[in-house]
């Protein structure tokens, strides 16, 4: 779906949900591609998206912006966005910005077992 610089994104259906695996750096150069790619998925009918962040090495504020943008889209489409296997540092950012209160996070098995 997207392969910008140091970021790779792939997705798979998991029942009603679509699991998006994100790997690499989410920053100023890659975040727009991530945002556009996942929003395209949502527009294509994958309204309930879980983003597996386990392979994310780096995520800055622009990455956070992408997540917020995706979350807005999912919500407008009547769906939801969740995060799985969030690395510690990103988890702290989510917590600091209060986004953990609107973005449900799941442990590893929730995202990976069937996807």
């Amino acid at each position: 779906m997207t392969d910008d610089f140091d970021l790779t994104v792939e997705h798979a259906r998991d029942g009603d949900r679509t699991v998006v695996r994100v790997a690499g750096d989410v920053d100023l150069t890659t975040a727009p591609g991530l945002r556009a790619g996942v929003i395209d998925l949502i527009e294509a009918g994958h309204r309930d998206v879980v983003m597996d962040m386990s392979k994310v090495r780096f995520c800055d504020s622009t990455g956070l912006s992408a997540l917020i943008g995706i979350w807005h889209h999912a919500r407008q489409a009547g769906g939801a966005l969740g995060l799985a296997v969030v690395p510690g540092r990103l988890q702290r950012m989510l917590s600091m910005t209060g986004l953990d209160t609107v973005l449900p996070t799941y442990p590893a098995d929730a995202a990976g077992s069937r996807g």
Binding site: L64, T97, G98, L99
Partner: peptide, 13 residues
């Protein structure tokens, strides 16, 4: 504790 990003969500606390 609990302050959220400003301008992202209408229901931000």
């Amino acid at each position: 504790e609990g302050g959220m990003l400003i301008g992202a969500l209408p229901e931000a606390r």
